[in-house]
């Protein structure tokens, strides 16, 4: 049978030391060569990739933290802006209130003043009118008297009469 060589101890009384040596040396040489030409470079690449991934993850983590920080910052800025806007609106409202009051007060004072002035002027005009009328009355009376009497009365009586008339006119008033 052609299997005889395969069986353990089929070689009879001797041990094939040669095979052992060949197996061992073949395996060791193979291992050495593979380490040098195949596993070494491959492990290097895998290590490199591992490093790359680790660094990528770290970068991603960092940028995540940074963006979170920025987001917080933005959020607080937004909050600030909102409060500020509120404040501004509030201030404007207050300011408007104040100026409204002011305008009303001013207007009120102005109108008061104008009324007073008008009253004063009216009184003035009245006085003026009265005195004008009075003078007119004096002149008319004088004229009338002159015409009626026609020099019958002396200058002195004339004057006295005039004054009397004036006084009467003053009472009439």
């Amino acid at each position: 049978m052609f299997f005889d060589h395969l069986a353990l101890g089929a070689t009879g009384e001797f041990l094939n030391i040669g095979d052992i040596l060949v197996t061992l040396s073949t395996f060791l040489v193979l291992m050495f060569l593979l380490k040098k030409f195949a596993w070494g470079p491959l492990m290097g690449v895998m290590q490199q990739r591992e490093d790359l991934i680790a660094s990528e993850i770290e970068t991603a983590e960092n940028s995540r933290l940074e963006s979170k920080k920025m987001l917080d910052e933005q959020r607080s800025l937004l909050k600030d802006a909102r409060t500020q806007a509120q404040e501004i609106v509030e201030n404007a409202k207050k300011q408007g209130e104040v100026s409204r009051e002011e305008i009303i007060t001013t207007a009120r004072a102005e109108s008061g003043r104008m009324k007073e002035a008008a009253v004063l002027e009216i009184a003035n005009e009245r006085d003026k009118a009265i005195s004008a009328v009075r003078q007119e009355v004096v002149a008319l009376s004088l004229l009338a008297a002159t015409k009626v009497l026609e020099k019958e009365i002396s200058e002195e009586d004339n004057r006295q009469l005039i004054n009397e008339t004036i006084a009467k006119a003053g009472e009439v008033q």
């Binding site: 060589h5 070689t11 094939n16 040669g18 060949v22």
Partner: peptide, 11 residues
């Protein structure tokens, strides 16, 4: 030393 040449070749 004895060698089984078949083994050697196949190895």
């Amino acid at each position: 030393l004895w060698f089984n040449l078949s083994n050697v070749m196949m190895l």
